[in-house]
Design a protein around this nucleic acid. Structure first.
Lengths: 200, 200
DNA sequence: TGTACATCAGTGAACGCGCGTTCACTGATGTAC
DNA sequence: TGTACATCAGTGAACGCGCGTTCACTGATGTAC
């Protein structure tokens, strides 16, 4: 029995299923498929298609994973930009952006990890970046833009790294279950940094 | 051919080999066995013993991994305490402790990840913690002790979390290749936090 | 409108792989008498 | 000192598993004449 998808529908069905399965794959607390990789056969099974059908749409497994990572990073970026804007920019926007980062991670543990486990080769020239690398670069630039203007380049770079590392660390520690998912505390920590560092 | 190890020597040989293999497994930049789990058979092969011999010393694979994680966290804790002391305590000690955390991660990527991927169940009572959980708790307390005394409990808790998340985030981002291993920059970021937060 | 044909997205069987784990075993070591 | 025996840390063969990937295939769709 040959199932038929109209022009490229299976492609998006695979992405959708992948995202769904990654979402279901919760953090360590959910017993289900804790830290395991998403499988190619697993996605095919979920869509209801033979495993080999996937090869009509992606050259290999890693291409599928890359597409999922790309979709994930796009969503993260979108969510952060929206949060910044909704909060009206400035320090409040910066705080909202950080909270959104951590929230995204705890809402999508497996997707979050997939995004960051894709080796981006920091050292590549822009022209050599793949789509995930480019999206990651955009994310870094978004952070940089939130930094106060009066700082020197070096200071801004350090402040941006500080902010990124802080939210990333919080996300990872919560995902691994080493820190409680206490949003009041998370906000306190983030606004603590903010109150001192980026005075604008 | 039955190899013979005098009373419990194979036990430590397995741990040693595990640590060695984890060390060799480097970060994403080293092509070798990037993100893959350490295998039971792999350790046995390295020690030069049959895979089943391991079962004389550990009930199953995860017990071996737990023993490795425990050894890792002990080493990390020891390194941090030494660094703090060598720097003479105070803010300098705090900075040294943080630098050591990040350095440990980049020096031992696979071991570092193994430590944190072991679900500790934050919510457990102390009496229910396994040895890894207990060691992790010690690590948290070490950080807390470095916090300035004049702060309220809540403030100290937030400051400790800030510090931990910051070094952890730096470590993860560097391990994943998203941030360059630039020690000057890392020190700048850490001392930036320190100059503002824990005034003692 | 009907027929011939190319295209191409699916199919299921099969591949080799390495894994963790089980099983019945063997052979050295140490102790009791 | 010599012999019988229990202990126990090793052994290699075998298990079932799920994986990513290859292969030759089939059957529906759409176009050219």
């Amino acid at each position: 029995m040959t199932k038929t998808y109209h022009h490229g529908d299976l492609h998006s069905a695979l992405i959708d299923s992948g995202l769904k399965l990654l979402k279901a794959r919760g953090g360590p607390e959910s017993g289900q498929g804790k830290g395991e990789d998403l499988g190619l056969r697993e996605v095919a099974r979920d869509v209801g298609v033979s495993a080999t059908a996937i090869y009509r749409h992606f050259p290999d497994k890693s291409a599928l994973m890359l597409a999922l990572a790309y979709e994930g990073i796009e969503r993260l970026g979108r969510a952060q930009r929206k949060a910044t804007q909704d909060a009206g920019g400035g320090p409040a926007g910066f705080l909202a952006s950080g909270m959104t980062y951590v929230r995204f991670a705890t809402d999508n543990p497996a997707l979050f990890r997939l995004i960051f486990s894709h080796v981006p080769a920091t050292s590549l020239l822009d022209a050599e970046l793949d789509e995930v690398g480019t999206a990651m670069k955009g994310l870094r630039e978004d952070i940089a833009h939130l930094m106060p203007k009066h700082l020197s380049d070096l200071e801004r770079k350090a402040a941006a790294l500080h902010a990124w590392a802080l939210v990333h660390g919080l996300a990872e520690l919560i995902l691994d279950g080493h820190v409680a998912k206490d949003w009041g505390m998370v906000e306190k920590v983030l606004s603590g940094m903010l109150a001192r560092e980026p005075r604008q």
